[in-house]
Design a protein around this nucleic acid. Structure first.
Lengths: 149, 149
DNA sequence: CTATTTTTGACATTGATTTTCATTTTCAAT
DNA sequence: ATTGAAAATGAAAATCAATGTCAAAAATAG
């Protein structure tokens, strides 16, 4: 039996809003649903362009604020890759992961490596750092793009 | 006998400028000297603030352009950490390195790990990526800051 | 020293992000 | 269903870092 991740996320979002005394609107719902469905790294701009096709009356501001809200609530995290643009991705109840980024087509692939994590902890320990988070990004040409460049 | 890194860098910068038909100005010299002397990750803003104390007649533009020039010439590289601000660091004739960043005081420590690099190559290979560059940043509290937080 | 070319400073522009504020919508209590 | 208080929304403005423009100033070759 398959769990419907998207609906579970949306229910939790609704509960969060309720607990915080915030309101649940159709527009917010549309945005969050699409965001969870896509389940990718998206900039405000990118998500806005997709949202527009579903409901042209949703403004950039609303998409922007919805993503900030999702982030504050812990349903999304944001990061900037080398282009300097902030991108959001849904947070899943899954482990930390890192990114392979194609510098030609922009494709982003997630991966994880326990071995690398272990080495990172060792390094932090060596410098007496209290390690809280980290980012590892690998840049290059993806399988498709390295053929035609 | 200690090698004067700073002067070696400046000589090379001067030669680079000459080869490119560019001019060597006192202001450029002041900026580059300070940049190499500090030998840290600095934003244009940060370097500008330091430069001002030496020569208040140097403008932000000039510092900005000097750093871009150093970057183009290969004497500096730039990157953005999580605060989204571009920072430059002098390039030394040494290997790739990564960063430990204190989220309280902003201190940046460099480190390298051959083991991690090897694992990265393996991962890129697994996804048929042609790996060109990468960044690894570890965030947390440094030795000093974890005491007083 | 002078002519030519580059550099500089001040300001303008860009592009992304964030804030403002007047208006509209939501939601709980009637 | 109506209403009133609080929150959400859209459009526009403000912000902020990064970058571009251009007339005036400075550097270098001759």
């Amino acid at each position: 039996m398959k769990i419907n991740v998207k609906n579970r996320e949306l229910k939790t979002v609704r509960r969060y809003l309720y607990e915080k005394g915030l309101k649940h609107s159709l527009k917010r719902h549309t945005i969050a649903e699409l965001f969870f469905r896509e389940d990718k790294h998206l900039s405000v701009e990118e998500l806005y362009d997709m949202v527009k096709k579903i409901d042209p009356d949703i403004s950039f501001s609303t998409v922007y604020r919805a993503l900030r809200l999702l982030e504050k609530a812990g349903f999304a995290v944001s990061r900037r890759f080398m282009d300097g643009v902030k991108r959001f991705e849904p947070v899943h109840p899954k482990e930390h992961h890192d990114h392979l980024i194609c510098i030609k087509c922009g494709k982003i692939i997630e991966f994880k490596s326990k071995k690398i994590e272990k080495l990172q902890k060792e390094i932090a320990g060596k410098y007496n750092f209290e390690l809280l988070s980290y980012r590892l990004e690998l840049y290059g040409y993806c399988e498709d793009c390295k053929k035609h460049r």
